[in-house]
Structures are given as C-alpha cells and as structure tokens.
Amino acid sequence: MTVNDIIEILDATPIAGKDRLDNEVKTACGSDMMSDVLAFAKTQCVLLTGLCNPQVIRTAEMMDIVAIIFVRGKTPDETMIKMADEMELPILTTNHRMFSSCGLLYEHGLTGGIIDG
C-alpha cells in the first residue's frame, strides 16, 4: 500500500510532504500518546493520531514514520506544516474518527505488525 492509496481509502487531504505520496507503507500505529509511538512503532509505519502539536512531527521524524494521518479533521498549523515539508514527511488529514480510520485501513490489508514483547 502507498500513501496515495491511504488518501483514497480514508478520503483524506494531503497537506504537507506532497512529493512523497508514493512511499510504501507496511504497518500502521494509532495513538494519541507519543510515548507509545516511540516505544512500539515499526519501520515503514504510518501514524494515525488525534493529537495535533509539533511533537507529533518530531516523533515521526525520530521514528522514520512514512506519513502522519490526523483523524477527526484535525489540521496542523503553519509551523507544523513547515517542519513536515522540510523533512519531506507527508501529512494527511481525514474526517474519519480514529476507530473508523484504523478499521478502513485494516480492511484494506494494513496491519499493526507483530508484537515483539
């Protein structure tokens, strides 16, 4: 699956990192706690979150997240968009809620990856 496929599945709008929408996605992680993302996110992972602050972008940078998907129509501010553009990190926003967004992606074959203790 690519970021472009996710845009279609979640009826999402890309707002940053628009040159990187054909990047490959292998797993997904849904959380509003960046602590959890830092502890559990896998490689080639997209992050679904309802938290909208610059630390979400930083966390994604540290974890090499493929794309951030803001759920419930959350929209990042100028600072966050600028940060993401500089990192060439795609940001999408969807009106779907967290549960539905995860469900839709799961239905299309994306999983959370294997638990490694």
């Binding site: 509003d32 706690m33 960046m34 602590s35 959890d36 830092l38 502890a39 938290l51 602050n53 630390q55 979400v56 966390t59």
Partner: peptide
C-alpha cells in the same frame, strides 16, 4: 504533560 502526548512512563525503559 499527558495532554501533550507524553507521560506514559515508557521513556526510561525505552
């Protein structure tokens, strides 16, 4: 701090 996305007690173990 929790509302900013941190404070789960995961940092030091991580």
């Amino acid at each position: 701090v929790r509302s900013l996305g941190f404070g789960a007690g995961m940092g030091l173990p991580n």
